[in-house]
Amino acid sequence: MPHSELMSIGVFARRSGLTPSALRFYADSGLLPPAEVDPASGYRYYSADQVARATALRRLREIAMPLGTVEAVLDADPGEAARLIDEHVAQVLGEAVAAQRNAALVKSALGGLPSVPVAALKGPVLADAVEQILTATAREPGMPVLGGLHIEADRESVTLTATDLYRLSSRTLVPTEPASTPWAATVDGDELRVAAAEIRRSPLVRVEATPHGIRLRLADREDQYCRLLPEEFPDHRLMLASLPEPTTRAIVSKPLLLHALEEHPEEHITLCATDRGVHVLTADAGHEHPEVLLPATVSGQPLRLSFRLTTLYPAVSTAIGPDVMLDLRGPDRPVTIRSADRGDLTTLAMPAKPAHHAA
């Protein structure tokens, strides 16, 4: 191949994202040999059709895949390559979970670590609440606090809250043993997810606050430890206090509403609350899709709101009980979603502009 159709190692490094030294290493190991080597100068040249292999190689190494597995993936057919990648990721995730657990155990066993009793709660109840509220978290690189669960404890209650800025979920639990003094902090959500399985198996969990985390003392099981997030949690109390009274209330069957959302073909969904019930239709008025009318008890003025499926569905699915209560305030105000007969789990969901207005 003429040199005019080849790239020098420096140019190829920029195209592939690999350093020249890495390219030399992968060439010597047989993973990515150059298309040509000048016999006189020893310069290495690469072709354009090698960029895809080099990029895949870089990405596989970025997920800590061993060289032997990388070679097998690069030389396999797509199905086998996908299987090998899945196996590697599962192993990495398993090792990460094991590392989290071991780190928690080591931190929990540290002698002399001061702690303050926060509250005692029933393990299965706390585990359920943690898993429900964590559905409202998000992984945002610039806002790690959105991946946390905010805990507030006083003598009467323990309140768990999480938000992704489009939803806010909160559940209030009655402690078996109340806190001696008020306490509040935001706990790492991923570490709580890992701890939830052990929490569920303990009839009683004593929550203790340490300078940088919480220790969960479990009955007849190893203690768990979760770190605190240093960032300030969004001021959800101010937002809740500023909410106007709802103008419309609808009580609708949770299974029927979830089924209508699952069958809906669009990313955007519009709900219309009228004296006939709750209408589910596409947000795009030009889309030909039959309207679904759900039986509902509706009070107040008729109202029409649009939502993203990714916002509304989790808010409804985590509600407790067979019926959900929707408190509506207008097309640009949060909707309160809770059980029709139990108020200890509450979710706020922000409406969205209809799809045909998005531009």
Rank of each mutant, 00 (worst) to 15 (best):
M1N: 12
P2G: 07
L6E: 03
L6Q: 03
M7D: 02
G10C: 00
R15E: 14
S16A: 10
S21Q: 11
F25L: 15
A27S: 15
G30S: 13
G30R: 13
G30I: 13
P34W: 01
P34H: 01
V37N: 05
V37C: 07
P39E: 11
A40M: 13
A40C: 06
R44W: 11
A48G: 07
A48M: 08
A48S: 13
V51K: 01
A54T: 07
R58F: 06
R59W: 03
R59M: 05
L67M: 14
V73H: 11
V73E: 11
L74W: 04
P78M: 09
A82C: 04
E87M: 05
E87G: 07
V89G: 08
A90I: 02
A90E: 12
Q100I: 13
A104G: 15
S108M: 05
S108R: 13
G112H: 13
L113M: 13
P117D: 03
A119K: 12
L121G: 04
K122T: 15
L126A: 07
A127H: 03
D128T: 14
E131D: 14
Q132L: 12
T135G: 01
T135E: 10
E140S: 14
G142V: 02
G148H: 03
H150Q: 10
H150E: 07
I151Y: 03
D154L: 03
V158C: 01
L160S: 04
A162P: 05
Y166K: 00
L168I: 01
S169H: 07
R171S: 12
E177G: 04
P182D: 01
W183Y: 06
W183F: 13
T186H: 07
T186N: 04
L192E: 05
V194M: 05
A195C: 12
A195D: 10
R201S: 09
P203G: 07
L204D: 09
V205P: 06
R206A: 08
V207K: 04
P211A: 12
H212Q: 11
I214F: 13
I214A: 12
L218Y: 08
L218G: 08
R221K: 08
Q224V: 01
C226I: 04
L228T: 04
L229K: 09
E231M: 00
D235V: 01
M239E: 05
M239I: 09
L243V: 09
P246W: 04
T248Q: 00
S253N: 02
K254T: 12
L258Q: 08
A260K: 11
A260T: 08
E262D: 15
E262M: 14
E263H: 09
H264C: 06
E266D: 15
I269F: 12
A273H: 02
R276V: 02
G277H: 11
G286T: 15
H287I: 11
H289L: 09
P295A: 15
A296S: 10
G300F: 13
P302N: 10
P302H: 13
P302E: 11
L303C: 04
R304P: 00
F307R: 08
T310R: 15
Y313I: 04
S317H: 14
A319N: 02
I320M: 06
P322A: 14
D323I: 01
V324N: 06
M325P: 00
L328E: 05
P334M: 10
P334V: 09
V335R: 06
V335S: 01
R338L: 10
D341R: 14
R342P: 00
R342Q: 12
D344N: 08
L345H: 09
T346I: 15
T346R: 14
M350I: 05
A352W: 03
P354W: 12
H356A: 14
H357N: 11
A359M: 05
